[in-house]
Nucleic acid binder design. Structure first.
Lengths: 192, 192
DNA sequence: GACACCATACCAACCAGTCAGTATATTTCA
DNA sequence: TGAAATATACTGACTGGTTGGTATGGTGTC
């Protein structure tokens, strides 16, 4: 395992925030879950919010790695790259580690009005993510404007985040795949 | 205004939960916002969770009233009824009162694993909502199976809830209308 | 001996919820 | 009618426990 305390704490933050929300997660409970003392927590993070930011960064780079591991980028045509990326998203909540939610979405919805550090980070991640998808879509659609591609990208992110929310609320995880597949059909009707 | 204290408290719960989340909202802050004493709070509600449930019920019936006020049901064909309902959803976050989010989604995402009362209520509301939309879609599509209609209904709810989340996180409210309009185009391509 | 790393004890502020008691309607019944 | 009984609405001080964060001192390693 060879995990250091900072990594263990970040992992605990991630799991607890998804389970109880940010405000519902105390520093003590994070330390307990990580099997680490409070002194260690405040050695690595200057505040609870700082720890959440760190966990969010970790989660986002893990997601990026998973996306790259799906090798969607190696497909030969823009159309195949987009479709492959959508397949990756459809399955992303079914992975073995099965994170029961999206840390980005959970944090953004809960604390975007109260914790400026987190909200600014989340906002940037969403913008950056949408840009990447918009490029994928723009390439696949060819003629469409950047504005339209961005709008479609935001619709995709909305469908995914909303489906994760709905899956969590109703205890019905397959909803995520289903929602992404609907988006795929929508975009395919525009590709032809 | 002639509002009684219970109504004032429910309104305060609603606003504060959207702003700070459920756990981030203290009973004291609710009372302060409502201009009501703590004793009054616990006279009307047996717990904070109970108050959240009451506020959620109030929000859901307000939404239902708004939907009915849009007169989507009076349209003559199933197709028009569905399209009119989608237009209602597209504009729902632009109302004058402009609730900065959806209480159902916010509560569901944050406390679905910790507060059984709220989660059970939210889960039922989502199921009930999806059933209603599925009927609307089933009627408009004619031949399609109930399963497919339900899947489309859940996709619509996902798109809406996700768009609200994204709008909040990035400070870009028009995203909601845009996402619903994409769904409308998707469903229209299936109607013809 | 300096520095990263971590443990324990501690703090003031805050938390949800309780309680004893007050004020004012509404109902009961002699 | 009118007094007693009851129910409803409300107040704000109080409680035991939790909160995020600090202070201080110890340990291993270069």
């Amino acid at each position: 395992m060879a995990e250091n305390n900072q990594f263990k704490l970040a992992k605990a933050v991630h799991e607890l925030v998804l389970e109880r929300g940010y405000s519902g997660t105390s520093v003590d409970s994070i330390c307990e879950k990580a099997g680490v003392s409070k002194g260690s927590f405040f050695h690595h993070f200057k505040s609870k919010e700082d720890a959440a930011c760190f966990a969010l960064d970790a989660w986002m780079s893990a997601m990026k790695e998973m996306a790259l591991a799906s090798e969607y980028e190696t497909k030969s045509t823009p159309r195949e790259r987009l479709l492959s990326y959508l397949d990756f998203l459809a399955g992303v909540m079914e992975s073995p580690e099965a994170p029961k939610g999206c840390l980005l979405g959970s944090l953004a919805l809960e604390v975007s009005q109260t914790h400026h550090q987190v909200q600014s980070k989340a906002s940037n991640y969403f913008r950056f993510w949408a840009e990447g998808i918009a490029n994928l879509i723009g390439d696949a659609l060819g003629a469409d404007s950047l504005e339209e591609s961005t709008s479609l990208a935001n619709h995709l992110i909305s469908s995914l985040e909303g489906a994760i929310l709905l899956a969590k609320a109703t205890g019905n995880p397959p909803l995520v795949r289903s929602s992404i597949l609907h988006f795929k059909q929508y975009i395919e009707s525009r590709l032809v």
